[in-house]
C-alpha cells in the first residue's frame, strides 16, 4: 500500500511560504487550489527540486527529506515520475530517446515499452523530434516518459490545463487507461475543479496564504 507522508514548511526569499501536512494513499489524489497557492512549489518539494526548510517527507517507508536527521535525497534517487506543466521534453532527442531516458534506473519497476507505446498511440511518432509534434502528442510523450521510468509515485502538474475540451477528453482517456494498466499511485495538481472531479479519488485542498508569508499556504484534507 503506497503511502506518501508529507509534513513540511518552506519559505521563498520573496516571502511566499507554504505549510503542508498530508498523507496520500494508492489511487489518484488531486491537489486542488487557486493559482499562486503553491501547488507547483509543493510538487517540486516532493520531487526533490526544492528543499524544505523544515519537516519530513516519506514514501513507502523511505525518507526523502528529514531536516532533523539532515536527510535530503536528490531528485534522481526518489524514483518518481513527473509530468511538468510545460512538459519539458528534451528538444534534441527523438520521441524514442525521450521515452527511454528514465528506463532501467535502479529501484524502478519495469514497464513494457511496446505496451506503453501502443496504449498511448505513440508508435508513429517514435523517430520524430518533440518540436514537430502537436500539443496533445507532446502531452502523451511526457506522460509516457514519466510512466516508463517505472515510478513509485506519479506527479502530474496541471496535466489537463491549457487543453481544449476535445483534447482534454482524449488525454484523460489515455491517462485513465495508463493508470488502470500499471496502477501507479498518482498525485496531480490542478486549479480546475472539473478536472479534479474527473480524475481524482481523493482530494487535498491547498488554501492560499498571504504573499507576505505571515499566513502561509496550507494543505487541508477535503
Amino acid at each position: 500500500m503506497t503511502q506518501l507522508f508529507c509534513d513540511i514548511r518552506f519559505r521563498r526569499n520573496n516571502g511566499f511560504a507554504i505549510e503542508a501536512r498530508f498523507e496520500v494513499g494508492a489511487g489518484v489524489t488531486a491537489l486542488f487550489g487557486p493559482s499562486g497557492s503553491g501547488k507547483t512549489t509543493l510538487l517540486h518539494l516532493l520531487a526533490g527540486l526544492l528543499r524544505p526548510d523544515r519537516g519530513v517527507i516519506h514514501l513507502d517507508g523511505r525518507t526523502f527529506a528529514d531536516d532533523k536527521k539532515g536527510v535530503f535525497l536528490a531528485p534522481e534517487t526518489r524514483n518518481l515520475g513527473v509530468v511538468f506543466q510545460d512538459l519539458l521534453l528534451f528538444p534534441h532527442l527523438s520521441v524514442r530517446k525521450n521515452l527511454n531516458f528514465g528506463v532501467g534506473r535502479r529501484g524502478a519497476r519495469s514497464i513494457d515499452f511496446r505496451r506503453l507505446v501502443d496504449l498511448l498511440d505513440l508508435g508513429d511518432l517514435l523517430e520524430r523530434l518533440p518540436g514537430t509534434l502537436s500539443g496533445g502528442q507532446q502531452q502523451r510523450v511526457a506522460l509516457g516518459r514519466a510512466l516508463l521510468r517505472g515510478p513509485g509515485l506519479l506527479l502530474l502538474d496541471e496535466p489537463l490545463a491549457s487543453l481544449d475540451a476535445e483534447l482534454k477528453n482524449r488525454i484523460l482517456d489515455y491517462l485513465e487507461r495508463a493508470l488502470a494498466e500499471w496502477r501507479i499511485p498518482t498525485l496531480f495538481v490542478s486549479h480546475d475543479w472539473a478536472d479534479v472531479r474527473l480524475l481524482a479519488q481523493e482530494v487535498l485542498v491547498i488554501e492560499k496564504g498571504k504573499s507576505t508569508g505571515d499566513v502561509p499556504s496550507r494543505v487541508v484534507k477535503q
Binding site: 520531487a47 526533490g48 527540486l49 536528490a74 531528485p75 534522481e76 526518489r78 524514483n79 518518481l80 515520475g81 513527473v82 511538468f84 510545460d86 519539458l88 528534451f90 528538444p91 534534441h92 531516458f101 528514465g102 534506473r105 535502479r106 524502478a108 516518459r145 514519466a146 521510468r149
Partner: peptide, 27 residues
C-alpha cells in the same frame, strides 16, 4: 537554455554529470 530541462532529467533518474552530458552540453 531552459534550466528546467535539467530538472526534468534529474527526476528521470539522471545524476548531475549525466544530466550535463546528455542534456546541457548537447543543447
Amino acid at each position: 537554455q531552459d534550466v528546467r530541462l535539467e530538472q526534468a532529467a534529474r527526476t528521470l533518474g539522471a545524476g548531475r554529470w549525466e544530466t550535463f552530458f546528455r542534456i546541457a552540453l548537447p543543447l
